[in-house]
Amino acid sequence: MTHAMTTLTLRVNGEDHTVAFPAHHTLLEVLRERCGLTGTKHGCELGECGTCTVLVDGRAVLSCLMLAVETEDRSIETVEGLMDGNRLHPLQAAFADLGAAQCGYCTPGVLMTSKALLEADGDPSEAEIREALSGNLCRCTGYHKIVQAVLWAAARLRGEDSAPSAEVFYGSPPPGQEASSSSSSEAHDDD
């Protein structure tokens, strides 16, 4: 059974990719295997984990459940497009500095979902961050550092320089015991 390939131009991170692929291929497959953009990962390919999340027209969607042909003439954003030149996006910098990326496998999807959230709401509460990211599974972090990183990035995007509290970097001082860690957190430079 032969089926004609579809050839079309996808606009990914503001750049045109003209690619040929069978019509039944998902955006996930085309991004990774035709565009060479392997930053987008996959964990189930069934819409159950959020790992493959990308933005299409600014909305967080699962690239494993969207045919690439459906994204023609739409704006696609992936983790590879987050940096501004050689400068990390505040979300990226916060994730790197806090250890919100441990193994880093769910990270691209979490970053893209977070970007969509912050574009819709520049000052989300912790509960709103948890809700927005509740479709993205992570097995390393327990999610705490991710929430802190999104809060930090949101603050920086608002122009506020408010680093997370020392607890986020050092844990809480053991009560009733001599402080054994230095108590001030160091603000980390962008990059």
Binding site: T38, G39, L82, Q92, A93, A96, D97, G104, S181, S182
Partner: peptide, 22 residues
Amino acid sequence: GKPFRRVDGRAKVTGQTRFADD
């Protein structure tokens, strides 16, 4: 004893880290 950005941190937030399937 002081917090620092993990040495592979930048690669992991930019999509540069190459996992086996990549």
